[in-house]
Amino acid sequence: LRQRHVACLARSERGLGFSIAGGKGSTPYRAGDAGIFVSRIAEGGAAHRAGTLQVGDRVLSINGVDVTEARHDHAVSLLTAASPTIALLLEREAGGP
């Protein structure tokens, strides 16, 4: 079961505080899956403080732009754009009992 949710992050002077992996033109985060995933969350960064991202979340869109088939460098450029806030649509595998 997959759950979707939106995370809104305000960029700090240190950026957004998370890294992505995967996407076309880069090493897959999961074998056989060209999706883009949250690969790291920086301690004390914007994403960590927001508490809405988890490592392993699939990134579906960035500020309304679909990145499900995107190249890695395109997703990075969307994240590093000048916008002071970033809205992410994420998909998470629902774990637990």
Rank of each mutant, 00 (worst) to 15 (best):
L60N: 01
R30N: 08
A46V: 11
V65N: 09
L60E: 06
G64W: 02
P97I: 10
F18W: 02
L90I: 15
V59Y: 03
L90Y: 04
R92Q: 03
A34R: 12
G45T: 10
S61M: 14
D73I: 05
Q54V: 07
V59W: 01
R14P: 07
A87I: 12
S39Y: 04
P28D: 08
R92V: 00
P28N: 13
S26M: 06
A31D: 15
G32F: 09
L9C: 06
G96W: 09
V55K: 05
L79D: 03
S26Q: 09
G96A: 13
A82S: 13
H5P: 01
A21T: 14
A82R: 12
L1I: 14
L79K: 03
R71E: 15
S77F: 10
A94K: 14
G56E: 01
G96P: 14
E69C: 11
L79M: 14
P97Q: 15
G51R: 07
S77L: 09
L53D: 01
L60D: 02
R2V: 10
D66V: 05
I86F: 14
G95T: 13
H48T: 11
I86W: 02
S83E: 15
G35I: 01
A87N: 14
V65S: 09
A10L: 11
I86G: 02
P84H: 13
G45L: 08
A81Y: 09
I36E: 05
L1W: 04
G23W: 02
A81F: 09
L1D: 10
I62W: 00
L16Q: 05
G32T: 07
S83D: 14
L78Y: 06
K24T: 11
S83F: 08
G17T: 04
P97L: 11
L79V: 06
R4H: 07
A47L: 05
D57L: 01
H48Y: 11
P84S: 12
P84W: 03
A87G: 10
L16G: 04
Q54I: 06
L16R: 02
Q54R: 13
E93D: 15
G22V: 01
R71N: 14
V6G: 06
T80D: 14
L1H: 09
I36H: 03
L78A: 04
L90N: 02
I36V: 08
G64H: 05
I20N: 02
S61E: 15
R30F: 09
R71Y: 11
G51W: 03
G23H: 01
A82T: 10
T85H: 10
